[in-house]
Amino acid sequence: MVKKNISKGARGFSISFLPYSEIRGLDSTQRIRKILGIILKNNILIIQGRLEPEEEVRLIEDTMAMIGHVKNFRGIELAVISGNNNSGFFGKFRQNLVNTIAGGDIGVLTILGPATIVKEIKKDPRKIELFLKK
């Protein structure tokens, strides 16, 4: 895991990068535990790839269950951005083939952060803006 510390102007958190190879072999429970473990340490997390839809709702459920039980935890901000814009049969076929070989959609980035640090993640199809709390 690559970790980048932010020293100036934004004290108390860091940005972590999780390559897909680090979560490929994990089951859903292990993935969510790993993600929450990083976020609870006040890190903004960038994951190569994305979670399955069922994993995303489990992450929301677990997050909700933690609010009020973990001190100063108010939930998370989450966004997924895809660089792939394959349309048409052959484009989709090619993408599915690449995903199958890689074991997941690695052309996608998932950004997560604790709501106490990340105020909002604004997303349009092609860009993400991260607004931090002062």
Partner: peptide, 13 residues
């Protein structure tokens, strides 16, 4: 903004 991840997660599920 419709690109809120909650919307995408609900629809995906």
């Amino acid at each position: 903004n419709p690109y809120n991840q909650v919307n995408i997660t609900i629809l995906g599920n």
